[in-house]
Simulated assay, not measured.
Amino acid sequence: MKKTLTVCYGALALVATALAAVLAVVFLAAVAIGGDAGTGLTELGGTLAGWSIYVAAAAVLLGLVHIYASGEHSLTAGTRKRPEDTPEDGSGEPAP
Score class of each variant (00 low, 15 high):
A57K: 14
A16S: 01
E88Q: 12
S70Q: 03
D85P: 04
L19V: 04
G63Q: 01
Y9P: 02
V7K: 09
G90Y: 05
V31D: 12
V22W: 02
D89L: 07
Y68N: 08
A30S: 04
G10C: 05
S52E: 01
A16W: 01
I33H: 04
L28T: 14
H66M: 11
A16P: 02
A18C: 11
T39Q: 12
G46M: 08
V31W: 12
G90L: 05
L62R: 01
G40W: 05
A29D: 04
V60W: 06
A37N: 10
L28N: 15
A49T: 06
A21F: 07
A49V: 05
T79Q: 14
T47K: 09
R80M: 15
V7R: 08
A69R: 07
A56E: 02
V26Q: 03
L48F: 08
A21Y: 07
D36N: 12
L19N: 00
S74C: 12
V65P: 01
V60C: 09
G38F: 00
G10M: 04
I33N: 06
T17H: 09
E43I: 13
T47F: 11
W51A: 14
T39E: 12
G34M: 02
V25I: 07
V55A: 01
L12G: 00
A20N: 05
F27Y: 15
A56S: 09
G34S: 04
I33P: 04
R80K: 15
G45I: 01
G50R: 10
T86E: 15
G71H: 03
A16N: 00
G71L: 03
E72S: 09
V65C: 04
A20W: 02
H73M: 03
W51G: 11
A24C: 10
K81G: 05
I33C: 06
T76P: 10
G35M: 03
F27S: 03
D85Q: 08
V25G: 05
V60E: 09
G63V: 00
G71E: 05
A11S: 13
D89N: 13
A37Y: 09
G50Y: 08
A16K: 00
T47I: 10
T79W: 11
L12M: 03
P87N: 10
A57T: 15
I67F: 10
L12W: 00
T76Q: 15
V7C: 08
G38S: 00
G90C: 05
E88Y: 11
L23R: 02
L12S: 00
D85T: 11
A69D: 11
A16H: 02
C8D: 09
S74Y: 13
G46V: 06
V31Q: 13
K81H: 07
E88G: 08
T17S: 15
T42K: 09
G90A: 06
A32I: 03
D36S: 14
V25H: 05
V31E: 13
H73L: 03
W51Y: 13
T79I: 11
L64M: 14
V60I: 14
T79F: 12
T86W: 15
D89E: 11
A29M: 05
E88M: 10
